[in-house]
Amino acid sequence: SSAWAINNAGVVVGLNHDGSRQNAMQWENAQESVLVTQTCCSGTSAQAMDVNNHGVVAGWTNHSNDGQSGAVIWTNGNKQFLPGLQAGSNGSFASGINDLGQVAGLSTNQLGYQHATLWSNGTVTDLGRVAGFSASFAERINNAGDVVGQSSNGFLTAMHATLWRDGQIIDLGSLNGGADASVAKDINNAGQIVGYSFVDPSNYNSLSKAVIWSDNLTAINLETLIDVQDPLYGKASLAAAWGINDLGQIVGWGWVGGQQQAFLLNPVSSVPEPESYAMLLLGLAGIAVHRRKTQK
């Protein structure tokens, strides 16, 4: 089983696998419930990707028991398929949902390309992609309707983290001035974005670095913000950031002593200055890192 998201009430969504089929799952108050049980045939899949604070779940199924496939939301356990950009197409996937019920993901458009997609108030919208790329994918959406994901040409060397905001498509770039690949995984209601950037995208075994895009949407390597006085300074490698909440807490994974570990970054207060710093305590072993903040 895998858990992919949690809301403020502690409802967790994800998947389990019974050896031949993958089922969309929900966990609440330590009780497990199946949103979609795949009984059709071996290899069928369903997955719950996100849940909002009203308990509405977004995800997908590739072959449901009623013959339909694609992006889906579950409300109180009731399933609703979302229409694709192209009529009759099953090539859709829901990955994020906000508290307004807006859903982000991807769908196959009229030209046969998979594009980041927004479902809002009964309408489906092709969000497009950064110029120079053929495809895009939306990962998450916040309550302001900001969507994050990536634009790509279908391979690692051509993939850039992307923000869709107020009708604009913003290339978030990467740690190497846009020369390497990057991915945006989550955005909070303050507009802070986390993800990762590959060091050498021409090498599929290349390392990645956890990244945050904040005030001016410039990619910042979270690893470079580790406090020099921390015992693990220079010893921990933060490979990818996967989630950020409205408290500024960040989760992801990295390496310490050659072993892969999950991390949790917890913000703590600092002394206010004209250009103050907010510190983050890393849950691997108390690593403290700080992030530059712009005064309002």
Rank of each mutant, 00 (worst) to 15 (best):
H63S: 13
P83Q: 12
G77M: 12
A87F: 00
G55H: 03
S69H: 02
G70S: 06
T61G: 11
W60C: 06
V56I: 14
G70V: 08
I73P: 02
I73M: 05
G67A: 07
P83G: 12
S64R: 05
G84I: 13
A87Q: 08
V72P: 00
Q86T: 14
L82W: 03
D66Y: 11
S64E: 07
Q80D: 05
G88A: 04
S64H: 15
V56D: 09
N65R: 12
K79I: 11
L85I: 10
Q68R: 15
G55C: 04
L85T: 08
G59V: 06
W60E: 14
G88K: 07
L85S: 07
K79N: 01
H63L: 15
S69F: 01
V57R: 04
F81C: 08
D66L: 10
Q86V: 04
V72M: 08
N53I: 09
G84P: 12
W60F: 15
N65G: 12
T61H: 01
F81V: 09
G70C: 06
N76K: 12
N62W: 02
Q80K: 14
G70R: 04
I73W: 04
N65S: 14
F81Y: 15
G55A: 04
W60Q: 13
G67F: 10
P83R: 13
V56L: 05
N65M: 14
N65F: 09
N53P: 03
G67S: 09
L85Y: 10
G55E: 06
T61S: 14
W74Y: 05
S69D: 02
F81N: 07
G84F: 06
G88P: 04
S64P: 02
T61N: 12
N76R: 08
G67D: 07
G55V: 05
S89E: 00
A71G: 06
Q86N: 14
W74P: 02
K79W: 03
G70D: 08
D66K: 08
H63V: 08
Q86Y: 06
Q68S: 14
V57D: 05
F81P: 05
N53Y: 08
